[in-house]
Amino acid sequence: MAKALSQFTRQLVAQNPVTHQILGVCSALAVTTSLDTALMMSAALTAVICLSSAIISFLRHHIPQAIRLIVQITIIASLVIVIDELMRAFAFELSRALSVYVGLIVTNCLVLGRAEAFAMRNPVAPSLLDALGNGIGYSLILIIVGSIRELLGHGTLLGITILPIVADGGWFQPLSFMQLAPAAFFIIGLMVWSIRSLDLSEAEIAEYDLQGERSQG
């Protein structure tokens, strides 16, 4: 149990699916223009990954090796359709804002990756915990990026004014750049950089080490 818990916490920061394993980056960048869409997407993805890992792990002895990818994708796609329909029924405005990205959970490498790498080989309980850890790790990044982009882009969080903007008589000039696509790339890039600066063992080895050559020459 202690091992399972340490595995769980490791996935939140050190082995974070988005910044460490580069899984599920597409949606992490696209739905983070505001905090509410980021939260909704996190909830949808965590639900899908937990359910799919549990179901796939439950069926793992009955899935033939040769067609396992098709079975996994079908299970995931069915779950996504259920979530998508639920979202349309109870949160129509948000599902409009998320547009195609809910459907794209199907091809989110994170969900399929955990199914293939973990749920196919482990019993139900550890698979569920693994999926939950990855889901929360993914949500964490989405929430951080979503908060930064909404706060600096509109001066609000979840629609509540935090920094009063100039147009309403406040002091904060909103950075509309934060709402554009490049800002998402920059924020994730800077996050990866800072995580790797804290823990240099994560950093990739440079193919051409200029420092080394300089000291030799």
Partner: peptide
Amino acid sequence: PRAMHGLASAFLVTG
């Protein structure tokens, strides 16, 4: 900087 090699620089360039 060493921590920037690979992924971090890739994101910034894409940005």
